[in-house]
Design a protein around this nucleic acid. Structure first.
Lengths: 381, 381
DNA sequence: GGGTGTAGGTTCGGAACCTGAACATGGGAG
DNA sequence: CTCCCATGTTCAGGTTCCGAACCTACACCC
């Protein structure tokens, strides 16, 4: 705001770095075309950013240079907490994943236990790479619940009961001795899908993550929309049936009590054994089990009700469905579409696509990596 | 995009005109403070815009000049079609309303009849001002239904059955021989409330218009959010009760069948006579009629369900409730709040304010005037 | 192998833009 | 009446971007 000229330059620099981050590798000419800037301007900006250490030019044979993000000789860590799983990935700024691993965790474990498990897993992956903690440039952390944007504290409607009221970024940061960027897992999944996955290139998208719970994230004009208190996208606790089951959030008949994995597995436990997980449920359905197909279909129809509301409010052109249940593909998507076409107003339903996520269960952790990458770039300016 | 420098200048000009439009009158120093530009830049931009005929400088005594929008010696016309009313206002660019009048119209009238009535009313108001049609600079038109942003055709879920499939901007434009800007009445109401009313200064707001039908508009980052096909904000056709009454949109149990004025008046017709309108219903309730109070309270509770969904999705900080039913004040707002506090997730409910609109029934027509003003400014650049 | 065409990247001059400083002017406090 | 301050203008200076010209490397054709 102080100087409109330098803010213009900054904005153009941001455009360039963002374009490189999204594409991975570009030539300067491509950069000029995608950003709309002139080749001359791109030339100077790329040189500046190279000198600043943000970009790297791998002189890929003569004139045709490839512009990438600077490797920075450092590692990025992404951590994704789910209801029953913990996934950690270590990657480079260049988007290359070096190591990745998921382990089961105990649902009712305290936050401290979960954070310890994450710390150990990070160390284990570092060991497997022969790397040190000091090489870590940044850490991104995904949690299944809303984060208060002011305090950084995990909101009440989380899947992890032992975590309510703590500040995961601070807690994890103390353990690793690093700054940690924390966000809702749905927001991170949306970020990943919008950057590299099924929503690539879209400016306005809604992303649903259907796993143990139901989360969502709204992307408007290319950015995660967070609302007044960071609670935007809490689709899982929309009331579908005012007299329905009690939800862990304290209300009745939330979408999550009708389409969340915790509830769905409960439905088939009697017939398919007590150890059924969401993933197993999907496998059985894909293998032809009619009961499991029905359960997933019903979940899709309930999701359809909520997505129809979403359509009438925001009229998105694309809804990406991620999370473990989305692996069911058309078994889940078709019932969603059926209900949306029936309930949403026609002009909104007509333009809507509903597609499964392209990144699967890794969306969260990839989004965590992407968020560190972005915040790293921002700080380098 | 072609020239980033000139686009910067353009953006700054737009900032200046927008600031003047919102405030009405400003000195250059105030302008510099609100826009963050330097006084020197403001000086040159104001001079340019004065030469362009967009701004006027009323030299209010020596150095302390007052900058306003140029009177342009012309008139703006705002037209607002409702279910049973038609309201027309004629104003100056300086935001002053010169003449305004509302007349009842027949619900089932054809579009041609409605447009004719509007044309006659415009002429009548012009006559009362001693003005000619040639003095009209622009016309803004509000209609109670979604407008397809590509074709300009009124969508199917309109309150005016005779209007489906026509292009109101073209039709009205032919009659008046002028370019007409058309938009959803809820969008225009939101624009008016955000510019001069209860949502003044807010960047993110939701506006509900509850009259014969239920419409809504979402303002994100200061602009009306229209979605992929211009259908964003169709809150009236969110499904509240899947097995509820048939709605004119073809579905069952839409919010409108539970909170729309058409339905509410039906409820009290048996006890209070067949001629009860929404306005009369509100008057009776305010006078203490328990039946009418109950009807409005129930409508508020149903609205609360939809607004709770809206909260969980978008987490707005402010919801403005307009339209004839909003005149009931706390009789409507309190039940809304009660339900929202119960159904929305706590962190979203905590930051939400629900307030009645400040512009009353005039919001639509004022918004229509504002939209012409804006589009006029844009074209003058 | 050599010539030519094409596309990428750089450099340079020009034009537009914003800002800080200096300056003129009018109003208000004492 | 004078001083002080806020306002608005002008000017020089610095920054930014763009168009055009230029150079380089690769591909292709003969």
């Amino acid at each position: 705001m102080a100087n409109s000229l330098s803010s213009l330059r900054e904005s153009n620099r941001r455009m360039v770095t963002e374009a490189v981050r999204r594409a991975g590798t570009l030539t300067q000419a491509q950069l000029a075309r995608t950003t709309g800037l002139s080749p001359a301007t791109v030339s100077t900006i790329v040189r500046e950013l190279r000198d600043l250490g943000v970009l790297a030019i791998t002189s890929g044979g003569g004139r045709r240079n490839a512009v990438t993000l600077a490797p920075e000789s450092g590692l990025l860590v992404g951590i994704d907490f789910g209801h029953s799983h913990l996934r950690v990935a270590i990657g480079e700024v260049t988007r290359q994943i070096l190591a990745e691993r998921a382990i089961p965790i105990d649902v009712d474990a305290s936050a401290a236990e979960g954070l310890l498990a994450a710390e150990l897993l990070v160390d284990e992956l570092l060991r497997s790479l022969g790397a040190q903690r000091t090489e870590i440039l940044g850490v991104g952390l995904g949690v299944p619940g809303p984060i208060d944007p002011l305090t950084g504290i995990l909101g009440s409607s989380t899947i992890l009961p032992g975590w309510v009221g703590i500040n995961p970024a601070l807690a994890m940061g103390e353990r690793l001795g690093l700054a940690v960027h924390v966000d809702n897992d749905a927001n991170l999944g949306a970020l990943a899908e919008a950057t590299w996955g099924a929503a690539r290139g879209r400016r306005d998208v809604a992303y649903l993550k259907i796993a143990s719970g139901v989360g969502a994230s709204i992307i408007i004009d290319g950015r995660v929309y967070r609302g007044a208190s960071g609670a935007a996208g809490e689709l899982g606790h929309i009331t579908i049936d005012e007299n329905g089951r009690l939800c862990r959030c304290g209300n009745r008949g939330c979408l999550e009590t009708l389409a969340g994995g915790l509830y769905l597995t409960e439905l088939v436990r009697a017939t398919h054994g007590p150890g059924v997980t969401v993933t197993r449920l999907v496998e059985l359905a894909l293998a032809g089990d009619v009961g499991c197909r029905r359960v997933i279909g019903d979940a899709g129809r309930h999701l359809g009700v909520a997505i129809a509301s979403l359509c009438n409010i925001l009229n998105p052109g694309l809804v990406v469905v991620g999370g473990a249940l989305a692996e069911a593909g058309p078994l889940l998507i078709d019932p969603i579409l059926e209900v949306v076409r029936r309930l949403a107003i026609p002009s909104a339903a007509a333009v809507l696509s509903v597609v499964p996520g392209a990144l699967g269960e890794r969306a969260g952790v990839l989004g965590a990596l992407a968020s560190v990458q972005i915040s790293n770039m921002e700080s380098a300016l």
